[in-house]
C-alpha cells in the first residue's frame, strides 16, 4: 500500500455532511418535537401562505389562484380595518393597565409574610380556572338581570347597565376580564424581578440619600427593566388572545364594538367559508403582532447587566 495517498487535500467549501455535523444522535431525541414543530408550526405558516393565495368553493376545495387579491380585499375592507384598530386598541388599553396593576400588586406583596403569600395566591387564582370558566363567571357577574354588579349599582342608586348590549361597557367587560385574569402573571414577573435586585443596592441608595420616591424611580424601576420587557411582551401576546369572551358572549357586537380582527377571521373561515380571505387576514394580523412585539423588544432593550 502506498501510504502517501493518505494525505488528502483540504476542502475549502463545507460539504453538506459538514453542515449537518452532529445531527445524527441529536435527531433521535429531537424527533418528536421536531416533527410536531414542522407539522403544526412551519407547515401551518406555509399552509396559511398557500391558502391566502387561492380561491375556494364553499366546500373548501381550491378552485383557482388569487395571487395577492385576498390580501388586497381584506386590507381594503373597512370592517377588517376597524377590527385591526380594535385589536391594536385592546393591546394599547390592556398592556399599560395590566402592567401598572401588576407592579402595584408586586410592590405591595413583595415582603414574604404569611398574609402576603395568601393574597398572592388569590391574585394568581384566576389562572387555574381556565378561560372558559372565567368567562362563565364574568357572564354571571355582569348579567343584566341577575348579575351582582347590576344589583350593587342599583343598590347604591346608580342606573343598571346592559353590559353586553351597550358598546363601551361591552368593551370594558372583555378587556376587564382579560386584565383580571392575567394580572397575576404580570405580578409574578415583577415579584421575580424584585427579588433579583440585590438588597445591598437598595441599601446603598438609602445611605446615598434616596427617599422612598427617589429609591423607586432611580433604583427599583430601572432595575426592573428586564421584568418590564418580559411582562410587556407577555401582556401584548395575551391582548391578541381575547377571542374567547367575544365568541362566547358578545359575538363581535354590539354594533361592532368588539368586532376584533381575530373574531372576523373566525367568522370568515367558519361562517362564510371564505378560506382564502381568512388565511390572508390571519397572516396580516400575525404580521402586525410580530411587528408590535419586535418594536417593544427594541424600545425596551436593556443595556446593562449585573456583574
Amino acid at each position: 500500500m502506498d501510504t502517501t495517498i493518505a494525505i488528502r487535500p483540504v476542502r475549502l467549501k463545507p460539504r453538506l455532511p459538514a453542515l449537518l455535523e452532529g445531527w445524527g444522535p441529536a435527531l433521535v431525541f429531537l424527533a418528536p418535537a421536531l416533527v410536531m414543530l414542522c407539522l403544526f408550526k412551519l407547515w401551518l405558516i406555509a399552509e396559511a401562505v398557500y391558502t391566502s393565495t387561492g380561491t375556494f368553493d364553499p366546500g373548501g376545495q381550491r378552485i383557482g389562484n388569487a395571487g395577492l387579491d385576498n390580501f388586497g380585499f381584506a386590507l381594503s375592507d373597512s370592517r377588517f380595518q376597524w377590527g385591526l384598530w380594535l385589536s391594536l386598541f385592546a393591546a394599547v388599553a390592556k398592556v399599560p393597565v395590566q402592567l401598572a396593576l401588576g407592579l402595584a400588586a408586586a410592590l405591595m406583596l413583595r415582603a414574604n409574610t404569611g398574609g402576603n403569600a395568601v393574597v398572592r395566591a388569590m391574585v394568581i387564582s384566576p389562572m387555574f380556572f381556565g378561560l372558559p370558566v372565567t368567562t362563565f363567571i364574568f357572564a354571571y357577574m355582569f348579567d343584566a338581570n341577575v348579575g351582582a354588579v347590576n344589583a350593587i349599582l342599583s343598590g347604591i342608586g346608580l342606573p343598571r347597565v346592559a353590559w353586553l348590549s351597550t358598546e363601551a361597557p361591552a368593551q370594558m367587560l372583555v378587556l376587564g376580564l382579560s386584565i383580571w385574569r392575567d394580572v397575576g402573571v404580570t405580578m409574578l414577573v415583577f415579584l421575580a424581578g424584585l427579588s433579583a435586585i440585590p438588597p445591598q443596592i437598595a441599601n446603598a441608595a438609602k445611605l446615598d440619600g434616596a427617599g422612598p420616591f427617589a429609591l423607586f424611580f432611580t433604583i427599583t424601576l430601572p432595575l426592573l427593566a428586564r421584568s418590564f420587557q418580559f411582562a410587556v411582551v407577555l401582556a401584548t401576546l395575551a391582548s391578541f388572545q381575547i377571542l374567547v369572551p367575544v365568541l362566547m358572549l358578545t359575538k363581535g357586537g354590539p354594533t361592532g364594538a368588539t368586532d376584533l380582527a381575530s373574531f372576523q377571521i373566525y367568522e370568515t373561515a367558519f361562517s362564510y367559508f371564505d378560506l382564502g380571505t381568512a388565511s390572508a387576514m390571519s397572516l396580516a394580523l400575525l404580521f402586525g403582532l410580530i411587528v408590535i412585539i419586535a418594536l417593544e423588544l427594541r424600545w425596551l432593550a436593556v443595556k446593562w447587566t449585573y456583574e
Binding site: 407539522l39 408550526k41 373548501g60 370568515t268 403582532l289
Partner: peptide, 25 residues
C-alpha cells in the same frame, strides 16, 4: 430560537390555517 419564536403565534390568530392543516391530515 426558532422553537421559542413559535410562542408568538397565538392560536386565536392562526385558527383557520391550523384547521386546514389538521383537515389535510
Amino acid at each position: 430560537l426558532l422553537m421559542l419564536f413559535t410562542l408568538f403565534i397565538p392560536v386565536d390568530v392562526i385558527l383557520p390555517p391550523l384547521f386546514f392543516v389538521v383537515r389535510d391530515l
